[in-house]
């Protein structure tokens, strides 16, 4: 039986997540792995929005911020369980994305980039300035999710690092599965179609503005859940999660790996998350490297690493 690209991608992903720990020299690597998965989840949302629908957002970290602070604030102020706070953050992000996206996605080109950038910065401005609620730039503690204790009682004892590694891994697999479902569905096909030609998409009955809005809302939910997982895992969060640089990181990861494919996005997230861990000297150069990667990939490797390699491989086969 021939594997469809969808099941092949999911199978490889599951295998990598399950087998990688065999090679971990220390517990620290579980943490790094979890970080890769969290970033990859947000980037998967960018793949849907930018890769398929052809829209660019420079403020998606704002939604990650909403997801993160929902988990920090809702349990303390309203007594909502952290797990439900994840959903609350996602819902809030979706509503905000809908409100912001509705008027803007009717327009073309640069407008979404600028409007989303403004939205992201407004969110991080609020997180920085409303000290009474968020404690400002110094950050705030986040309650324990509590699931690990439940698992332990059920006889599955995991270290904190292992628990978050597998939980974030599962979240990524689910996120990638949903994105791949979307890709070959009516909605996903319509998104890719309007990316190719908006006017033709309209003539076959596609409501272009509505479709773009759907992509924007879906990708906002991905970013929000990613932010929530980051906050719950670190038990601490600062407004940096909503910052401009984080938005740019998401876009860079996506275009580096290949913004048109889920596998590419995940690969890009892995590379840009691991690189600073391997080369700690790079910390000083983070912005320099990020900027250079964005420019160079767009000029020399427009499709990103993974699709370019696949294309080369296919050509060799033929």
């Amino acid at each position: 039986m021939r594997l469809t690209p969808k099941s092949a991608t999911l199978l490889i992903l599951v295998a990598l997540i399950a087998l990688a720990p065999v090679f971990f020299p220390s517990g620290f690597y579980y943490r790094v792995g979890a970080l890769v998965f969290v970033n990859a989840l947000a980037v998967t949302g960018i793949v849907i929005l930018t890769g398929w629908a052809g829209q660019i957002s420079l403020g998606h970290a704002g939604f990650a911020g909403i997801g993160a602070y929902a988990c920090a604030l809702a349990p303390v102020h309203w007594g909502i369980h952290p797990a439900l706070s994840v959903l609350l953050g996602a819902a809030a992000s979706a509503v905000l994305a809908w409100l912001v996206g509705r008027p803007i996605l009717r327009l073309k080109g640069y407008y979404l980039a600028v409007a989303s950038l403004g939205m992201g910065i407004l969110i991080s401005m609020v997180l920085n300035n409303e000290r009474a609620l968020t404690r400002g730039p110094d950050g705030i503690g986040v309650p324990e999710l509590g699931l690990r204790a439940v698992l332990k009682d059920a006889g599955l004892g995991l270290s904190n690092g292992q628990f978050w590694y597998f939980l974030c891994g599962i979240a990524l697999v689910v996120g990638a599965w949903a994105a791949l479902n979307l890709r070959d569905s009516a909605t996903g096909r319509a998104l890719r179609a309007l990316h190719g030609s908006e006017v033709a998409a309209r003539t076959v009955g596609m409501d272009v503005a509505r479709l773009k809005l759907q992509a924007f809302v879906i990708s906002a939910v991905y970013a929000s859940v990613s932010g929530s997982l980051l906050a719950l895992q670190n038990r601490f969060i600062t407004p940096d999660v909503a910052g401009f640089l984080h938005s740019v990181e998401m876009v860079t990861m996506a275009v580096l790996g290949g913004v048109g494919s889920v596998a590419g996005g995940i690969f890009g997230a892995a590379v840009l998350t691991l690189l600073p861990q391997v080369l700690t000297v790079l910390a000083e150069y983070e912005q320099l490297v990020l900027g250079a990667v964005m420019v160079l990939v767009m000029i020399f490797l427009r499709e990103g690493i993974v699709p370019s390699m696949l294309r080369k491989g296919r050509r060799r086969e033929e």
Binding site: T50, G54, Q55, I56, L58, K108, G109, Y110, A113, L245, V248, V251, T252, V255, E284, Y285, E286, Q287, L288, V289, L290, G291, A292, V293, M294, V295, M298, I299, R302
Partner: peptide, 22 residues
Amino acid sequence: PVVSLVIITIGASIFIRGAAQL
């Protein structure tokens, strides 16, 4: 496409900022 150009000029701005910081 516009998306690529946005990424390029944003990339250039981050690059310049990173260099200025160094």
